[in-house]
Nucleic acid binder design. Structure first.
Lengths: 336, 336
DNA sequence: TTGAAAGCGCTAACAG
DNA sequence: CTGTTAGCGCTTTCAA
């Protein structure tokens, strides 16, 4: 079965390869009739253009790179999955890469993608992203945070967290612990600000007689658990009555810590997470969490890449609102 | 900044483009000295060969496709992540695609990958995979199950499950429920066989006075939960004292069901999962599970693709052993 | 509007 | 061992 090429199509249709190419690329200057005839032949022969050849001439690969810190994180895997769906709908495919939050690895991956001539990169930057310099003219959409000089799609972490913390305040909580993300993570800091916003706004109502209520740590289960242990292993009147965790994974780890310490949730401790991953509704009890619109983020990121003029650096920026998803890990605090 | 091409390198090194190409491809017939000199220039100029041009001539894209049913499933996302790591080490990149277990979508994706001229596909087949016909000569490694006619890498589901069920038997359990995967899923059926093996081998020791102890359902949390509900919502002497779930997600859903019914785990119910995803060690209590060697599977799959002669259809097959990871969801049954 | 022809950047014969 | 050269399959001027 000799591979069918554009010449075969041209020959059979009695036209030049140029015309076939124009049909393929929806070039306006082709007669309706001719277009139809050629399309017919293409169909008939089951011809598909060779992407390499195409990309070589036209500098368009219909390939999008996506670099995330960790595919094991449900938030990111859902992001990738959504992006793949949207991209496929437009004839684009996705190359995934994991940076493990290493700037060096990230730089290497970006280089690979560049030389692959991807049409754009969806990037969840590592914390040291600023240390690497990018090849110019490559469309990049930063996701999960906004960065000056780049197009960016993210959810409004700050106000999202504020929403969650205010919910706890409204329930009557006054000693609210906060499990934050890594010190240098931008989204982590945005979330922390949301917490501080809410607490400040609540003003004198907030009490904190003991050690600090804010723990800085990684976003994973285990970190959430040890942070929870730290926050909860103190005298009852110093112990927070509620904890807001910067990720659902942390929140679930924290639930584990509470359980280990014999602290009932939500009776003696309310917990709120952040992200809204599917698992959050399957914990026992179901986690109250602030939900990010992951699919929207993915769709918007792809859209920016497909829309943006190459090297136009339009700096599209979108911030999506988060929404509170009430579960069973929150309740009014017990009287002291 | 005019893009640096192979001719620039050749000119600066005072050799022909042919020689540069040979250096690039580690062709043996190049002098040590020349190789060194050319490599130096390449480095200096920061030259990277254009993959499209390369692929067009050589029919090698250094691209591997990976198609899985659902990236949201932690087992698969870890698989993809591992594969990406290994592939990158060899200069290969990964195109991910999700089939959502739809044969039609799967066929479409395979077609896309084929026309992209990927060097191979790592495929977790959908349940209706047999209905689609493949373009010949495309190296495919089937993962998570073995299929006649294809190279395949999987873990030994059957013996893995047997291991887990035998562990429960050894603890003294006699009414052991089984949450199975989808009816037409091959891995699901392999696991079911492992359960039947163990139960049969245990012989008369096994009792089942009531409704069937086997539930067929999807692999996700919610399915595990409702299956658990079904198995546990019966009179005490008919209720299983232990449940083996075919996935960790099911197991976690089942824990939730037990909790909702007020059945303490492991005191009144032992639960064992399958997969060994990271989350399994963060549940409360920690899940006892049968662990698949995911990274080994991914590495082996990539290795097969990189090794296998194109169209040689060597039919490499590897079955990895699973291992029991003891958590806190298992204990001896309460006396009736 | 369409055809002819010139490459895109590289690899692989084929010479030398 | 190295240089020369002919394309890979397509897109895109340039003419017609």
């Amino acid at each position: 079965m000799p591979k069918v090429g554009i010449r075969d199509v041209a020959k059979l249709a009695g036209v030049s390869t140029g015309t076939v190419s124009r049909v393929l690329n929806d070039h306006p200057s082709v007669t309706q009739e001719l277009r139809r005839r050629v399309s017919g032949i293409i169909e008939e022969l089951g011809y598909t253009p060779d992407p390499s050849a195409r990309s070589m001439r036209s500098k368009v690969s219909r390939l999008i790179g996506i670099i995330i810190p960790d595919l094991t994180n449900p938030f990111f895997s859902e992001l990738v999955q959504s992006a793949e769906q949207v991209a496929a709908k437009h004839g684009y495919n996705i190359i995934v890469m994991t940076s493990f939050d290493h700037a060096a690895k990230e730089a290497d991956r970006i280089r690979q993608l560049t030389s692959r001539k991807v049409d754009g990169i969806i990037l969840v930057p590592s914390n040291d992203f600023h240390t690497i310099k990018l090849p110019k003219g490559l469309p990049i959409v930063v996701v999960d945070r906004l960065m000056p000089g780049y197009s960016g799609i993210a959810s409004d972490h700050r106000n999202g967290v504020r929403l969650g913390v205010e919910y706890l305040l409204k329930l009557g909580h006054r000693r609210i612990g906060f499990i934050s993300g890594p010190k240098h993570s931008v989204p982590a800091n945005d979330r922390l600000k949301g917490y501080l916003d809410a607490m400040e706004h609540a003003g004198g109502a907030v009490q904190n007689p003991g050690p600090p209520l804010i723990m800085e740590t990684a976003f994973d289960y285990e970190s959430g658990r040890s942070a929870g242990n730290y926050l909860l292993a103190r005298a009852r009147h110093e112990r927070p009555t509620a904890i807001f965790a910067s990720s659902d994974q942390q929140a679930i780890g924290c639930m584990r810590a509470a359980h280990d310490l014999g602290i009932p949730v939500p009776a003696a401790l309310s917990i709120v997470g952040f992200d809204g991953i599917p698992l959050s509704s399957m914990t026992t009890p179901r986690l109250t969490t602030v939900k990010q619109p992951i699919q929207q983020i993915a769709a918007a990121a792809v859209a920016v890449l497909l829309t943006e003029q190459p090297a136009a650096s339009a700096e599209n920026r979108v911030l999506f609102a988060c929404e509170l998803s009430e579960g069973e890990t929150t309740a009014a605090p017990q009287p002291d």
